[in-house]
Design a protein around this nucleic acid. Structure first.
Length: 471
RNA sequence: GGUGCCAUACCCAAGUGGUAAGGGAAAGGUCUGCAAAACCUUGAUGCAUCGGUUCGAAUCCGAUUGGCACCUCCA
């Protein structure tokens, strides 16, 4: 079955066809490591993981490359603005390198906790300065650059199709509309952007490298072009990131990459929509700084957040609230409970060749391969869990198959018997069973609340009483 | 000022021309000493409003209202 993906470049659904056989070159814009990732950032990485898993389950081999932006980047694109990593370093009295390493580690903690499949290549910008310099030299040789005020600029008028991804109408765009942004008078065209800085208003940066244009540091966009081409070739299949990257970051990446090589750089562009909080777009500077750690401290499992994100389509804005996360948590734990009960009943993996099972499998694939419709695919999972015309082995096997895409960790769920409870709790449970036998309801109820206080829920069923850990 | 996206039940959210997925919450039921849990059942004659195209529209077109995003921090 073919995979259909929405390509931002064409603004339409396209049948996915890799350039070479079943090999997919995938580049995703990674984190800028000057602070913790917020859950809006993480939503985009979850989308990319969903994409990767969907391609894998569809028979493709995915060669995934992700960058780590550990060179500061300025807070503005002219030669003004502060370096974000440096700013954080000054605040915390650490070196810029320590800051970058600290937040890179923090990022991958979240990455693993969310069960995201690690990229084949994770590349740090600071390890690829030479590739960036080489690319800028190539642009210079092609007549696409100029030096002004000490910085090397890319001239957008040197190419015919600047802004094609964002469909920018260059004549009507305003420059520096935001009050905190100043126009850069060194630019010939206000949309030109810096490839290499040697001068910054804020003086010496902590991270500087020698270059043909003087000691300095790379511009915003060059790292993704340089590294993606280094690892994936001058043309590759998919480039993805957040929707905000379309008008500037990806637009400029395309301009400089295609100006350098003279050929189409990326075949499919995919962008994840924003997660919104009560104040609108999530930000690190205003409102509550929502991190995965914060969610965990409030009693949520990272898988709750993963389930929550799967419940919305990646190209739709998703409204975050703790109330909405709570419903995801309940739903997810209901899924887990059902899997656990199946295991208790002896469910095991089996080949899926029953007619009904294949129907479910195909419906699932059709939905997920239709531009990653995870909400619909989640409905398929519920359909399976609730359909008693399927054998228990078929249900379990379908759930395990679906989870190759969902990544909710369903295969890690163990048989409930293997759960162990403290002696003390088991003793209390036994006492309660006896109290019940003697119809001493007062004692039975007090033992129940005692166990409840210990964090165990008592479940009475026709088969007897048992304990369950409270979530 | 310019551009783009969105508006579906109490909440979240699929569905892009053929008669409204799913989850959560809620209600009723089974079970139970009572609870909890579990299981079963129930839910929009209608998809912001108005008009149009069509045999047929949540889906297409136009207008209106409301929300969001982007136009050099941003996933």
């Amino acid at each position: 079955m073919p995979v259909f993906l929405y390509n931002t470049m064409s603004r339409s659904l396209e049948t996915f066809q890799p350039m070479q056989g079943n090999e997919v070159g995938l580049y995703s814009c990674g984190p800028t490591v000057y602070n913790y990732a917020h859950i809006g950032n993480l939503r985009t990485f979850l989308f990319e993981d969903l994409l990767k898993r969907t391609l894998q389950v569809s028979g493709f081999t995915v060669n995934h490359v992700m960058n780590i932006t550990d060179v500061g980047h300025l807070t503005g694109d002219g030669d003004e603005g502060e370096d974000k990593i440096e700013k954080m370093a000054n605040q915390t009295h650490k070196t810029v390198w320590e800051i970058a390493q600290f937040y890179t580690d923090a990022f991958f903690n979240d990455y693993d906790a969310l069960n995201l499949i690690r990229p084949k290549v994770v590349c740090k910008a600071t390890d690829h300065i030479q590739q960036m310099i080489d690319l800028i030299k190539r642009l210079e040789d092609g007549g696409h650059t100029y030096v002004s005020g000490g910085n090397v600029y890319f001239s957008i008028d040197s190419i015919p199709d600047y802004g094609k991804l964002a469909r920018l109408d260059l004549s009507s765009l305003q420059t520096a509309v935001r009050e905190d942004v100043q126009a850069d008078d060194n630019k010939k065209n206000s949309k030109d952007f810096v490839l290499w800085f040697t001068k910054s208003k804020h003086g010496e940066q902590a991270m500087m490298w020698d270059s043909p244009w003087g000691r300095g540091f790379p511009g915003w966009h060059i790292e993704c072009s340089a590294m993606s081409m280094y690892y994936l070739g001058e043309s590759f299949d998919i480039h993805c990131g957040g929707i905000d990257a379309i008008p500037v970051h990806h637009t400029n990446e395309i301009a400089q990459s295609e100006a350098a090589t003279g050929k189409e750089w990326v075949k499919y562009w995919m962008h994840g929509e924003f997660l919104l909080d009560e104040t609108g777009k999530m930000s690190k500077s205003k409102g509550e700084f929502l991190t995965l750690s914060l969610l965990k401290s409030k009693g949520f499992d990272p898988m709750d957040y993963r389930y929550f994100c799967l419940g919305g389509h990646y190209r739709s804005q998703l409204k975050f609230s703790f109330e909405a996360l709570e419903t995801a948590k309940t739903a997810r734990s209901n899924v887990y409970d059902r899997i656990r009960r199946m295991l208790a009943a002896g469910a095991k993996n089996t080949s899926l060749d029953g007619e009904k099972a294949l129907e479910y499998k195909n419906a699932f694939l059709e939905h997920i391969q239709h531009d990653l419709n995870s909400p619909r695919a989640l409905a398929d999972l519920w359909g399976v869990l609730k359909d008693d015309t399927l054998s228990i082995d078929e249900k379990y096997s379908l759930a395990m198959f679906f989870d190759q895409v969902f990544g909710l960790g369903l295969q890690t769920i163990e048989k409930p018997e293997e759960e162990s409870f403290p002696e003390e709790a088991l003793a209390l449970l036994q006492k309660r069973v006896e109290a019940k036998k003697e119809k001493n309801w007062a004692l039975a109820d007090s033992l129940r609340s005692e166990l409840d206080a210990m964090g165990f829920m008592v479940k009475d069923s026709p088969a007897g009483s048992s304990l369950e850990k409270k979530m």
